[in-house]
């Protein structure tokens, strides 16, 4: 008679696998792992890699939702694997796929090169509005000025918002919510004077104008960055600039 006290709780994980050297296309593989109530999906994946199939590939690092590495589709929703718990996904099976809207490199690893290029393209650094030398002291900022852009500075580049955005799915050249959040982190910073340098990034059809205000990017963001706010307030900025640019004192650089 099996000893009830030794019986393990198990859960099934259905994972989309893809090995470019041997597979024509992705296909699901199934794993059953023992779990405890404190285990995250990431720990489930690590259990598989450690004990069942060492070839399973996935990105991870901090295990605490600050590095942005472990984004993936869990039961159809973009989530961080370290921040999603097996106890909330009972009885299973849990469906795990790589992030939507990105090419799959291998298993749960997606291509991030385009996203990195978008981040780099928006001048992601403070271009001082009124440059100061060291001797003149620090750039001062009130709590209210900080509050104006603070949420956008919380972005961990996890790309869940891109996986959630259907317009990015339709148009991979759309600059997208994450890059726009970073852009607004700088445009909204009282110390920054680089708004005009960044205007080309927002004003094209692949800038803010690909966005149709679906808003689910902000819903899935694990850090409450509110990228939808970054994109949509720049529609207002871009629209006014469209008509008022002839009155600009300086040129866009």
């Amino acid at each position: 008679m099996p000893d009830a006290a030794l019986a393990e709780k198990t859960i099934e994980l259905k994972i989309l696998r893809y090995r470019p050297a041997s597979d024509a296309e992705p296909a699901f593989g199934s794993f059953t792992v023992p779990y405890t109530d404190d285990m995250s999906v990431l720990q489930g994946l690590q259990t598989i890699k450690d004990t069942l199939d060492g070839t399973l590939s996935f990105r991870w690092s901090c295990r605490m939702a600050v590095c942005g590495s472990c984004g993936m589709m869990i039961n159809g929703t973009p989530r961080l694997a370290c921040n999603t718990f097996l106890r909330n996904l009972l009885p299973g099976p849990v469906t795990i796929e790589p992030l939507n809207n990105f090419p799959i490199e291998r298993d749960l690893v997606v291509s991030v090169g385009d996203f990195v290029k978008k981040i780099e393209s928006i001048y992601p650094y403070i271009i001082p509005r009124e440059p100061k030398t060291i001797e003149e002291g620090p750039y001062l900022q009130t709590p209210a000025q900080l509050a104006a852009y603070e949420s956008f500075s919380d972005c961990i580049n996890c790309m869940l918002c891109y996986a959630a955005c259907p317009q990015f799915g339709e148009n991979p050249d759309f600059i997208g919510p994450g890059a726009m959040a970073l852009l607004q982190r700088y445009n909204g910073d009282s110390r920054d004077g680089g708004r005009l340098k960044r205007i080309d990034a927002i004003s094209g059809d692949n800038g803010v104008w690909s966005c149709t205000a679906v808003g689910i990017c902000s819903d899935v963001c694990p850090k409450n960055v509110d990228p939808a706010n970054a994109v949509n307030q720049n529609k207002t900025n871009s629209a006014f600039d469209f008509f008022l640019r002839f009155l600009r004192k300086e040129d866009a650089q």
């Binding site: 709590p143 209210a144 909204g188 706010n229």
Partner: peptide, 18 residues
């Protein structure tokens, strides 16, 4: 959606929830 199209409204140093 309206609050999403505006910069954050800051009152007394804090953001007013949308």
């Amino acid at each position: 959606i309206l609050p999403k199209t505006m910069p954050k409204l800051i009152v007394d140093g804090k953001q007013v929830p949308q």
